[in-house]
């Protein structure tokens, strides 16, 4: 029983992170109908930005509340900027081209980022994983029984940050002018443009928002995993994509539920089966979902408009 509870807690903690990354996929898919393959790698770049900032701040500074805030702010702003440039120079020129060209571009960017960061050219980090500094010093937050169930403070904090970000996003999409514009663009961007919505700006802002979310999620992941590596974006990104599909891609609450489901499933496989199979689970699950319910749990398979 205690073991089950522990797995549940770990699964939820991992799931919220997947959910945050999945939100980025879903938002971009919503406005552009593009699977942003480079999303995970943008996240990885953000984690490295946070890593560099944490080191620049020094040991004492980075574990203070202000230090953590600075680390997150730098990573999220830097990623928003990166997302802006990628959208502006790689995706926007291809917006009216066949969808395949945008997909290939996204794959190219993903590859260039994840393998570009492995070069050892001095200012780049190199291929080896590095230890992520303890931005949040791990403290046991809650212990039940004889260490049967342990809840760490970083699990609580990352859960809190994730929930705060999700609530903020929900507010932004459904309660603000910008959110309304976003939903209009997602409905039909040509018609939205005719209605006077600055579609270019909305799409750029959506990209920046999703990249910033990814950076935040990536930092939480790095804190959980205590390491950074150039390939983390590929793996976390893929799993988050699986989460987005499980929930129904383009559906905001669906991405959250999908992330939590995936986090729990993975945790239970690691806990009760074998940890070496963890990476295969997500994709096996994806194929299963596509076979049984291709639209995901909440999405609908939309008829294609001609």
């Amino acid at each position: 029983m205690a073991q089950l509870l522990q797995h549940l807690i770990n699964g939820l903690a991992a799931g919220t992170i997947y959910a945050l990354v999945a939100l980025g996929y879903t938002m971009v898919y919503g406005v552009l109908k593009l699977i942003n393959f480079a999303h995970g790698d943008v996240m990885m770049v953000g984690v490295y930005m946070g890593y560099a900032t944490a080191f620049a701040l020094g040991r004492d500074m980075r574990s203070s509340l202000l230090g953590v805030a600075v680390v997150f702010a730098v990573a999220m702003l830097g990623c928003a900027l990166l997302g802006f440039f990628i959208e502006r120079f790689a995706y926007r020129p291809l917006r009216e081209k066949p969808r395949l060209t945008a997909l290939i571009t996204a794959i190219g960017i993903s590859f260039a980022l994840s393998y570009g960061f492995q070069l050892d050219l001095g200012f780049l980090p190199g291929a080896a994983p590095r230890a992520f500094p303890e931005v949040i010093e791990p403290v046991e937050w809650l212990v039940i029984g004889d260490r049967d169930v342990v809840v760490w403070n970083w699990q609580v904090i990352s859960f809190g940050i994730a929930v705060a970000l999700m609530v903020g996003l929900q507010y932004l999409v459904f309660r603000t002018r910008f959110g309304r514009a976003m939903r209009a663009v997602s409905w039909d961007h040509r018609v939205a443009a005719l209605m006077g919505i600055p579609t270019d700006r909305v799409i750029a802002l959506t990209f920046m928002l999703s990249s910033a979310l990814a950076a935040g999620a990536g930092l939480l992941y790095a804190i959980k995993d205590t390491s950074v590596s150039p390939l983390m974006g590929l793996y976390v990104g893929l799993k988050a994509f699986v989460a987005a599909v499980i929930g129904g891609i383009g559906h905001v609450p669906g991405a959250v539920v999908g992330g939590l489901v995936l986090g729990l499933v993975e945790e239970f496989v690691v806990g009760y089966a074998a940890s070496t199979w963890r990476d295969a689970v997500a994709f096996g699950f994806l194929i299963l979902v596509l076979l049984v319910k291709p639209g995901g749990l909440f999405g609908r398979v939309a008829a294609e408009k001609v």
Partner: peptide, 28 residues
């Protein structure tokens, strides 16, 4: 079969995932 019933992007992700499954199976 499952991924080609859907739009093209799914095939990209599923084939990528398939490569990973193969790697995990071989390693185990």
């Amino acid at each position: 079969l499952p991924s080609l019933r859907l739009r093209g992007d799914y095939l990209a992700i599923v084939t990528l995932g398939f490569g990973e499954i193969i790697r995990v199976v071989v390693q185990n």
